[in-house]
């Protein structure tokens, strides 16, 4: 009796183990296939070129602007490599904030709809795999690639700066750059998730590419204009009286709307984390400033300031991914 019971229990256990294995196994296979697809595709060359140009431009910008930057403040030289731009050349950080999204978009904009138009989706889903593994595998492969690219770009920038200036980075600077890398990966992952979402909703790769680029333009350019417009409508500042009464509300309103945009969230976070002189991300009144001693914020305090931005970015990414996930799970699988 006891023997037979252990027997069935074992069978149950192996059954479950097999199930878990098959789930992980197929996810692994899908992940590896996506990865090799990306790397061997021609598109990857363009992405590499994009990242290389960004890095080179960033290094060039830092090299030309460094002298002026050091004259005004000669602390945290290593971080300045990332944040300093020349007269005509933006810094590595602002370059990444603008160009980075394209990497995510290019990796994701045809994730699902190309499977559909190639006629591979039906064939793929007829294999003994869970449907969600397909979209998760695509997202993970894209994320891994983004992580590699961003890390490589940042390390290159750091190394170039190290070679030209001869300053060794301190532990704190390294930690700050590490946090910057994590933020950048998450930021680009948001765009990857967004592109994948469009690829689930749009039948044609061209439509989804255009839609995701449109979103990029909206967030990077129009959002701040719209924020200013709405803030001025809600809290007008036409005369001195209104200015005095509404200034803070106006600014807060603008900030609130801007922070809905991942572009703003990201730039706010990285400019804080890479610049220890930034002491606050919200408006500070004169009375709050009284008695404050000018100085650098320690690493953990900088991190505290931008912690909500990380949460916000992660939440946005997750939200967008969940929408595409749910839509993909419920979508009909037709030949085309």
């Amino acid at each position: 009796m006891a023997k037979s019971m252990t027997g069935t229990m074992d069978a149950g256990k192996t059954g479950r183990a097999e199930k878990i294995y098959s789930r992980r196994g197929s996810l692994g296979v899908l992940y590896r296939k996506e990865m090799s697809d990306h790397i061997r595709g021609r598109r990857f060359l363009i992405i590499l070129l994009l990242v290389a140009v960004t890095t080179a431009a960033g290094i060039y910008g830092a090299a030309t602007g460094m002298k002026d930057a050091l004259e005004s403040d000669s602390n945290f030289v290593f971080l300045k490599l990332f944040t300093t731009g020349g007269a005509s050349m933006p810094s590595y950080v602002s370059f990444m904030a603008l160009i980075g999204p394209f990497v995510g978009l290019m990796l994701g904009f045809d994730a699902i709809n190309s499977e559909r138009s190639n006629g591979t989706l039906g064939r793929l889903l007829a294999q003994p795999i869970y449907r969600d593994n397909v979209i998760i595998g695509k997202f993970l492969a894209g994320t891994a690639l983004i992580a590699i690219l961003v890390t490589a770009g940042s390390v290159l920038t750091g190394a170039a700066g190290f070679l030209t200036t001869g300053f060794l980075p301190t532990g704190e600077e390294l930690a700050r750059v590490l946090v910057y890398i994590v933020y950048t990966i998450l930021y680009i992952c948001f765009w990857l998730a967004l592109a994948i979402m469009f690829s689930v909703f749009c039948r044609h790769a061209a439509t989804s590419a255009l839609s995701s680029i449109a979103m990029w333009v909206v967030f990077a350019v129009f959002m701040s204009l719209v924020a200013g417009f709405i803030a001025n409508l809600a809290y007008p500042m036409r005369n001195e009286y209104e200015q005095a009464a509404n200034m803070l509300s106006n600014y807060n309103c603008q900030l609130f709307i801007n922070r809905l945009s991942p572009y703003y969230l990201y730039t706010e976070a990285v400019s804080t984390i890479l610049n220890p002189a930034v002491r606050a991300v919200n408006p500070v009144t004169v009375s709050q400033m009284i008695g404050a001693i000018s100085g650098y914020l320690p690493f953990d305090q900088s991190l505290m300031l931008v912690w909500p931005n990380l949460a916000g970015l992660a939440a946005l990414t997750l939200l967008v991914f969940m929408i595409s996930y749910i839509k993909f799970m419920r979508q009909e699988i037709r030949g085309n």
Binding site: V29, K33, G119, T120, R123, Q127, P128
Partner: peptide, 25 residues
Amino acid sequence: LPDNVGFYPDMTGRENLMFTGMLNG
């Protein structure tokens, strides 16, 4: 075998089959 069966265009026939084999464990 779906109607209008398709394969990953950047992979060879052999690689496409290998992918299916791996997905089947």
